[in-house]
Amino acid sequence: MTRVWDVPVHDSTRVRDVRVAAEAAAEHTGLGRDRGAAATLVATELATNLLKHGGGGRMLVETVHDDLGLPGTGRGPALQLAAIDHGPGIADLAAASLDGFSTTASLGAGLGTCRRVSDHFEVHTVPGRGTVALARIHAARRDRPGHRSPDTGAPVRVGGINIPLAAAEHSGDAWACVRSGDLVTLLLADGLGHGPAAAKASGAAVGRLRELAHLPPAELLDALHPALHDTRGAAVAVARLDLVSLRLDFAGIGNIGARLCSGDTWRPLLSRPGIVGAHRPARLPQSSLPWTRDSLLVLHSDGLPSRWVPPPLARLTSWDPAVTAAVITRDSSSAARPARDDTTVAVLAPTPQDQRP
Score class of each variant (00 low, 15 high):
L241E: 00
A314G: 09
S318K: 08
A201V: 11
R307W: 05
R116A: 14
I328W: 01
K200S: 14
D151A: 13
I163P: 00
I328N: 06
G252K: 00
A139K: 14
D151N: 15
G87P: 11
A26H: 10
R148N: 13
L93P: 04
H229N: 07
A227Q: 07
T125W: 05
P310N: 04
T131F: 03
G36L: 11
D11W: 11
T48Y: 00
T103I: 06
L51R: 06
L269P: 02
D264G: 09
R247F: 01
T48L: 04
T231M: 03
A22G: 11
L51W: 08
R144T: 15
A234H: 02
E169G: 14
R208C: 15
L93Y: 08
V123T: 09
A96F: 05
D67L: 08
T2V: 09
D331M: 01
P8R: 10
Q286W: 00
P196G: 10
L209D: 07
A204V: 03
D66I: 03
R35Y: 12
D17Q: 13
R293I: 10
T125V: 04
V123H: 03
T40H: 06
P273V: 03
S306H: 08
E219M: 13
P357D: 07
G160Y: 07
A140D: 14
H147M: 12
E27S: 14
V345S: 06
H53V: 04
V206Q: 08
G195D: 12
L50F: 07
R240K: 14
T185L: 02
A83F: 03
G32Y: 06
A82G: 01
R148T: 05
G110Y: 02
T131L: 01
A37Y: 08
P312W: 03
D67M: 13
A133N: 00
D173P: 07
G54M: 01
R136E: 04
A213C: 12
R141N: 05
A167V: 05
V309C: 11
P77N: 07
A24Q: 15
G57L: 10
A139Q: 15
F121W: 12
E27P: 02
T44W: 00
D320W: 09
